[in-house]
């Protein structure tokens, strides 16, 4: 049945043409041109990769990058979920206000929000001052210029990227399905974990994917709120590109990042039974 209605091959080609032409001419060609530096700069060979792997520095940088990305993704999923749920539950009034708050925070310049966090979090900052005045702490807590700062700042920025797709997903769920489970005698807990959460999976996946991948290449927030001891890859690359004009090394480290991410993606696709692009009702 659905075979008959799915798009024919040549039409698929037509639909994919614009994006393929665009990405190939403005993305792949320039990118390959630059990434070739990794094996040609300063001379042809694998010396850049050898250099990267020779010290623990690069491994540490990669480790930081993935650690931060995983933490930020988990935290923003955890914080985004109740928000999306609430917005779906009460679409008017309270939910509308929540949605507007999210839109407002997205609208506000990223740079300004990051700076605002800096002033809030620093040890002479507002949060520490309040906590000290209340007598909760005696010594200011170090919440910025380290990984804590990066994680707070980035999770904050990423929450909307979870909420919007998740909310779209939740509002597409038929409440009757949950009702049916309840009538069949399932407890609230069972319904939540066995019915509700699985139905939210597409939204959680697309939001989580966006946040995770975005975090890998994020520069601004770590640069402003982070310390140097937990340097992430983008900053390492910028140092190579800007200060040392070492494009070979910069490209090599980007290539390694892409390969690792692709490998993770591949494993995910293999482990995952349903494809991230197949429709829920179709296949």
């Amino acid at each position: 049945m659905f075979m008959a209605f799915s798009i024919k091959k040549w039409r698929v080609g037509m639909l994919l043409l614009p994006i393929l032409v665009f990405l190939c001419s403005f993305f792949i060609i320039p990118l390959v041109g630059l990434l070739l530096h990794s094996i040609t700069d300063p001379k042809f060979g694998m010396q850049n990769f050898a250099q990267l792997l020779a010290t623990t520095t690069y491994a540490k940088v990669l480790y930081n990058t993935f650690l931060v990305s995983i933490l930020v993704t988990s935290i923003s999923l955890l914080l985004g979920f109740p928000l999306a749920w609430c917005i779906t539950l009460v679409p008017k009034g309270w939910g509308r206000i929540l949605l507007n708050i999210i839109l407002l925070s997205m609208w506000t310049s990223l740079l300004a929000r990051t700076y605002s966090w800096l002033v809030l979090l620093q040890s002479s900052g507002v949060i520490n001052k309040i906590l000290m005045a209340l007598g909760i702490i005696d010594q200011p807590i170090e919440m910025v210029h380290n990984m804590t700062g990066v994680i707070i700042g980035m999770s904050y920025i990423m929450i909307p990227f979870i909420v919007l797709p998740l909310q779209a997903c939740m509002s597409a769920i038929d409440p009757m399905v949950l009702q049916a489970a309840s009538i069949c005698g399932a407890s609230a807990k069972t319904i939540f974990f066995r019915v509700f959460l699985p139905l939210c999976k597409p939204g959680l996946f697309s939001g989580g994917l966006m946040v995770f991948v975005m975090s890998l290449g994020y520069y601004i927030t770590p640069a402003l709120l982070g310390g140097v001891n937990d340097m992430m890859l983008p900053e390492f690359i910028i140092e190579q590109v800007q200060n040392f004009l070492n494009w070979g090394m910069a490209s090599a480290s980007a290539v390694v990042l892409v390969i690792i991410t692709m490998a993770m993606f591949y494993v995910y696709l293999k482990v995952q039974t349903d494809s991230p692009v197949s429709s829920n009702t179709g296949a």
Binding site: T55, T56, T57, K60, V61, N64, V228, N229, D230, M231, F236, E239, N243, F244, N246
Partner: peptide, 14 residues
């Protein structure tokens, strides 16, 4: 020597 110092520098930082 900037580049070789930077290598040591980054290794020390991390």
């Amino acid at each position: 020597h900037g580049e070789e110092i930077a290598k040591r520098w980054n290794a020390w930082l991390l």
